[in-house]
Amino acid sequence: MSPLGSRVLGRPDAVQVWRNLANARVNYSVDEVRRPSWNIDVHRTALPAERPGPPEPGGSWEQACRLVRDYEFSPPEIVRALYDPAAPLLGRDMLLEARFHGMHFYCGVRVTGVVDEVRDGTDRVWGWAYETLEGHLERGRATYEVVKRQETGEVLFVVSCHSQGAPTLDRITSLGWRLFGRRTQLRFYHRCAARLRLFVEAELRGREPLPGRSPAVGRLVWAPSDTRTHHRDALAIHRVAPG
Rank of each mutant, 00 (worst) to 15 (best):
Q164L: 11
E117Y: 02
F180K: 12
L90M: 11
A14F: 00
R207N: 01
V200E: 00
E97V: 01
R239P: 00
A193P: 02
L96M: 15
D84Y: 14
H238L: 02
A81E: 12
G121D: 12
R183H: 10
A22W: 03
D84G: 06
G218R: 05
N23W: 01
R213L: 10
T227Q: 12
R141D: 04
P85E: 10
P85M: 11
A24N: 12
W177E: 06
A24G: 11
R99Y: 10
T112N: 15
G91M: 04
S29Y: 11
V115H: 12
L4A: 10
N39W: 15
V109Y: 08
R195A: 09
P48L: 02
V147M: 05
G5F: 03
Y28R: 00
D116E: 10
G176N: 07
G176R: 13
L156S: 11
E203M: 06
V155A: 08
A166T: 14
H231P: 10
V115F: 13
E203Y: 10
M1S: 14
S60F: 00
N39S: 14
T122L: 14
A166K: 02
A46K: 05
R25V: 03
H231S: 13
D93I: 01
L196K: 03
Y106D: 01
I40G: 08
V114K: 11
V158G: 08
G140H: 02
V155L: 09
P215N: 11
Q16H: 08
L156F: 05
E138A: 08
L4I: 01
Q185W: 06
L95I: 00
G212P: 12
F199D: 12
I40S: 12
V146T: 07
F157I: 03
L156M: 05
Y130R: 09
V33T: 12
A234W: 02
E72S: 13
E32I: 07
A193I: 04
L21D: 02
E117V: 15
V147H: 07
S29T: 05
F100Y: 13
R7M: 08
G165Q: 11
D93V: 02
P215V: 10
P75N: 11
L198M: 13
C161T: 09
V114Q: 06
L21V: 01
R191M: 11
P55W: 03
D120E: 14
A142S: 13
H190E: 07
V118P: 04
Q150W: 02
L133P: 02
V115G: 02
L90Q: 10
S225I: 07
A193N: 07
T122N: 15
R187V: 05
H230G: 08
L137K: 05
P85K: 05
G58S: 04
S174M: 11
A64T: 09
P48C: 07
H162Y: 15
A166G: 12
P215K: 01
W18A: 09
T184Y: 08
N20S: 13
D170Q: 00
I172P: 00
